[in-house]
Amino acid sequence: MSTATDRPVKVIEAKRSWWRLDLADAWAHRELLWLLMWRNVTSRYAQMVLGIFWSVLEPLAMLLTLVVVFGLFIRVPTPGIPYPVFVFSALVPWLLFSKATMNAIGCLHDHMALVSKVYFPRILLPFAAVFRDLFDATILVVILVAIAWFYGYPPTWRLLMLPVLLISVTLLTVTIGLWLAGLLVKMRDIRPLMQIILQIGFYFTPILFPPSMVPASIMPFYQLNPMYWAIEGSRWIFLGQPLALNASFYASLFLSVVLFFLGLFVYSSQEKAAVDVQ
């Protein structure tokens, strides 16, 4: 007969150093990550009559508004591309970016009831928080393929690069969440401030207009925006638009990678004190 002393004991200790990420522990809890991801998807539409159709209705309503205002009234010039498909090909990655960013920065604050009661690697939270928006983006991609095909842009081999694009945008949102999630627990102003920044970024990113309208003198700095390349990459995939990678692309990529890994350490140092702030 086994006794209590014969049973394996797991000792949970506080991390002594801010630079210890405990990625091995996060990998050991990967099943919990999938559970959190799926819960985020199902909980959003659980008590809605239309359910998952809201992930389609909201973007399509936004697309219709933009097409009427900027396509019919203002008549923004596009390089020979019908305005609906021109805008929608940029709107899909932007909606993923903007919505997932807000969920990523709120991952600690929104799960404080869980964080304060149960131990698990909290590094899982920002990754789980953005999965719902990645799921919605895949549904929009199907609609985008159909709309592009209707306007004479059938899918090509470039569609194989779509997962790379979506994952890249998702990791960008996780990066922002890693930097700001802990700060949001202390300063609730971060969330409305980020909403304002995203609204401004929507009009400064080439979503409603082609990049050719940007002055050439500021283009190298303008292209440092990672979402510039995400949107141009989307138009390359769905519309076959030329995509010339230059020094600004590699600088933007390098900066994004550096900020992601630094964000892991920033998040690790902030999440330990999140419960104490509450």
Rank of each mutant, 00 (worst) to 15 (best):
L159K: 12
I176W: 00
L114R: 11
R191N: 07
G152N: 09
V141Y: 06
A148C: 13
M161Q: 03
T138R: 02
R132F: 00
M161C: 04
A129Y: 00
F150I: 03
F150L: 09
I167W: 07
V141F: 05
P192T: 05
A128Y: 04
L166C: 02
R191I: 02
A128F: 07
V115I: 14
F127L: 15
A128S: 15
L114V: 02
P163R: 13
I190S: 06
K186A: 15
L171C: 06
A128V: 09
F131W: 13
T156R: 12
I143S: 06
W149L: 04
T173A: 15
L171Y: 13
I147L: 15
W179C: 03
P155Q: 11
A129S: 14
A148K: 05
L114Q: 11
W179N: 08
I167V: 15
W179M: 09
F120R: 13
L125V: 10
L171V: 11
I176P: 01
L125D: 01
L172N: 12
T156W: 10
L125M: 13
I139P: 01
D133I: 06
A181Y: 04
V185M: 12
L114K: 08
I123R: 11
D136L: 00
L114T: 06
M187V: 12
K117F: 03
W157L: 15
D110P: 00
T175H: 05
F135P: 01
L144I: 06
L125C: 08
I147K: 09
L140W: 00
L144G: 06
M112K: 10
G152K: 10
Y153L: 03
R122A: 04
P121N: 14
L140C: 03
I139F: 13
I123P: 01
P126I: 10
P163N: 10
M187E: 13
L165R: 13
I143A: 11
L180V: 01
K117W: 05
T173W: 02
A181C: 06
V145W: 02
A148I: 02
I123G: 04
L180D: 01
F150T: 02
R191V: 05
Y119I: 08
T170S: 15
L144N: 09
F127S: 08
T173G: 14
L178G: 06
A129Q: 07
V118M: 14
L162C: 08
T138E: 04
R158S: 09
L178T: 08
V115D: 09
L162M: 15
